[in-house]
Simulated assay, not measured.
Amino acid sequence: MKTQLNQSIRIVISLAVTLLIWGHIAWDYVHGGIPTHYILHNKDLPGIPNWWGGLVLPLITYFLLFRIQQRIKKPASKETLQKIGLRFLSGLIFAVTISICYMQDIQIVDFIMGLVFLMAFIFPIYKSEYFLGWVLGASFTFGAIIPIGFGSLLCLVFFIIYHLVGFIKSLLKSKGN
């Protein structure tokens, strides 16, 4: 029998994320105020305060864990929690690397993003566990809303890239027969 990501585990993980994000928001509040991130770094455009992450991040965490569980419990699924954990960890490491480069003004973010786009041709990096790792890893630096929005767009692009490659492979196979 496969290991499941049952509801109690999803709730515990979501509660841990809730405590972490609200702890971070409280820290920010006590140490100079809750940061606001402006669209395109332009203060004339609307700002998104980090406290929105305290509301949205626990919900998106639970939702993504639910989606992962739905995929695991399919009878034909070959997914394991170990694979999913490694995917989550790679998304988290990617986000933390981007965050550190951004905070330290290291100019390799474009190269890292290019590498990720190349990886999208080979790996299904649009999956929920990659996205969850990205959102949790980038939330400390960018708040939660910006990584969720940007990550959603990236996942859509990665989904199209990955399935387009699969479609082209199947076309080439059918032409070869």
Score class of each variant (00 low, 15 high):
residue 118 L to R: 09
residue 150 F to P: 02
residue 103 M to W: 13
residue 125 I to H: 02
residue 153 L to F: 00
residue 74 K to C: 12
residue 148 I to M: 09
residue 116 V to R: 07
residue 99 S to F: 04
residue 170 S to L: 10
residue 25 I to Q: 03
residue 129 E to W: 03
residue 157 V to Q: 09
residue 93 I to W: 03
residue 81 L to N: 11
residue 105 D to P: 08
residue 159 F to R: 02
residue 85 G to Q: 11
residue 175 K to T: 12
residue 76 A to H: 07
residue 72 I to N: 08
residue 69 Q to H: 07
residue 89 L to S: 00
residue 43 K to E: 11
residue 45 L to T: 14
residue 113 M to D: 08
residue 128 S to Q: 13
residue 162 Y to M: 07
residue 172 L to H: 04
residue 126 Y to L: 06
residue 165 V to G: 00
residue 131 F to K: 01
residue 58 P to R: 02
residue 93 I to R: 10
residue 88 F to S: 09
residue 27 W to Q: 15
residue 35 P to N: 05
residue 4 Q to F: 08
residue 93 I to G: 10
residue 121 F to R: 00
residue 150 F to W: 10
residue 144 A to S: 15
residue 110 D to T: 14
residue 13 I to N: 11
residue 91 G to A: 00
residue 20 L to E: 08
residue 42 N to A: 10
residue 69 Q to W: 06
residue 95 A to H: 07
residue 30 V to G: 06
residue 76 A to R: 09
residue 40 L to H: 10
residue 142 F to P: 04
residue 25 I to L: 09
residue 119 M to T: 07
residue 6 N to Y: 05
residue 72 I to P: 04
residue 98 I to Y: 04
residue 9 I to H: 07
residue 44 D to V: 04
residue 60 I to K: 00
residue 46 P to H: 08
residue 83 K to D: 15
residue 169 K to L: 00
residue 116 V to A: 15
residue 63 F to A: 07
residue 7 Q to R: 11
residue 57 L to E: 01
residue 131 F to R: 02
residue 52 W to F: 08
residue 48 I to M: 09
residue 2 K to C: 13
residue 164 L to G: 13
residue 164 L to I: 11
residue 168 I to L: 13
residue 96 V to N: 04
residue 9 I to L: 11
residue 135 V to N: 04
residue 137 G to C: 13
residue 108 I to E: 08
residue 14 S to F: 00
residue 92 L to N: 01
residue 31 H to W: 01
residue 52 W to R: 04
residue 10 R to S: 09
residue 4 Q to A: 12
residue 136 L to C: 06
residue 161 I to M: 08
residue 64 L to P: 01
residue 136 L to M: 07
residue 148 I to L: 07
residue 171 L to V: 08
residue 115 L to N: 05
residue 24 H to Y: 14
residue 106 I to K: 12
residue 138 A to K: 03
residue 154 L to C: 14
residue 146 I to M: 11
residue 14 S to D: 07
residue 137 G to H: 01
residue 80 T to K: 06
residue 96 V to Q: 05
residue 12 V to M: 06
residue 79 E to G: 02
residue 120 A to F: 02
residue 45 L to D: 14
residue 49 P to C: 15
residue 174 S to G: 14
residue 129 E to Q: 15
residue 98 I to R: 03
residue 41 H to I: 11
residue 37 H to R: 05
residue 88 F to M: 13
residue 73 K to H: 09
residue 167 F to N: 14
residue 162 Y to I: 05
residue 45 L to H: 14
residue 130 Y to P: 03
residue 143 G to R: 02
residue 52 W to S: 09
residue 83 K to H: 10
residue 55 L to K: 07
